[in-house]
Design a protein around this nucleic acid. Structure first.
Lengths: 169, 169
DNA sequence: GGTAAATATGTGCGTAGCGCACATATCTGG
DNA sequence: CCAGATATGTGCGCTACGCACATATTTACC
């Protein structure tokens, strides 16, 4: 394998993530996995603390404290889950608004890097990235992790394979 | 502009950076900008604390403390710079070894994502990324920042434009 | 139906990584 | 020779996080 391509993709990815993180910090005033948490909670299938923990790849206590921050910022509410142990995380109105800003900021950051390419080049790039992602060997949790910042208003058909991966239960 | 491509590149970049950071933490036992600092210092044109600060995008004090950590880990030495104010940062033998491990780990992490593509597809992707980077409007400092994790043993001709950007002095 | 294990959450405590404001040393330009 | 610019170091606090432990609920097994 030629290593030049790996170095190029590494450099590009760093630039992309730098810009996304900078925008996210400006929007929510927090760093680390906090912006991703806001997005994940907003996907809205009754997210629990523990599911969130696995998606973000944090420790249990780290996740509890992260949610504490979101609650103290009035972006998230803890409600009772069906299972008496679980906590159901819900966005407040303000949390949903911040989440939308966050998603828009992310798309805008990446777009500003992409718009030097022609429409044809972007299409070609999209096809290649789609193939690359589609062929990865990812568990279900891996997919949620990779997609933890994804814009569900934009990503209609996620290329990540849906077959593998043991369901978490 | 079609936003699907921006979302795809954002997701891929997150996956790439996640894997790079995880490997880096395993190699040097440190997170944040510490691994990048080790790589940047290793480029070896008499790196100073202040240049490092600008490349990493950290505050001044944050950079001093970062170097403190590298020194206490015996990876970096502070020597006298030509200008009596400056500190010249140099890798120790152990620092140079860690840096090589770091670079290898990074290339390996990205390669493991890339190797689902055919050689032809990888070539196409390399061409597109190269174009994308070449057309960015980056200052000299931006380029060092984007390339702060780059493998100088692999990246022979960096696509980033070298014309613009005021030299820092 | 009762108890052990599994599951889910919260807490005390410490650490890593970082920024702000301030202090200090050296260099440069008039 | 002295004011500003440049470069580094420090006191202090804060955010984000992990480990170990405590607690509540549910499930499984007998």
């Amino acid at each position: 394998m030629e290593h030049g391509i790996a170095n190029l993709l590494g450099a590009l990815s760093l630039a992309v993530v730098d810009r996304i993180e900078q925008g996210a910090r400006e929007v929510v005033g927090r760093g680390g996995e906090t912006p991703a948490a806001l997005i994940v909670i907003g996907y809205g299938q009754g997210m629990t603390n523990d599911k969130l923990r696995r998606i973000l790849g944090l420790s249990h206590s780290g996740t509890v404290r992260l949610v504490d921050r979101l609650v103290s910022d009035r972006l998230v509410e803890r409600r009772a889950g069906k299972d008496g142990r679980e906590v159901a995380l819900h966005l407040t109105a303000s949390g949903a608004a911040s989440r939308n800003e966050l998603l828009a900021s992310r798309i805008s950051a990446v777009t500003s890097l992409l718009d030097v390419l022609s429409a044809a080049e972007r299409k070609q790039l999209a096809r290649l990235i789609r193939e690359l992602l589609a062929r990865q060997d990812t568990s279900e949790m891996d997919r949620f992790t990779i997609c933890r910042m994804c814009d569900d208003r934009v990503c209609t058909n996620c290329p990540l394979p849906t077959s593998k991966g043991q369901h978490g239960h």
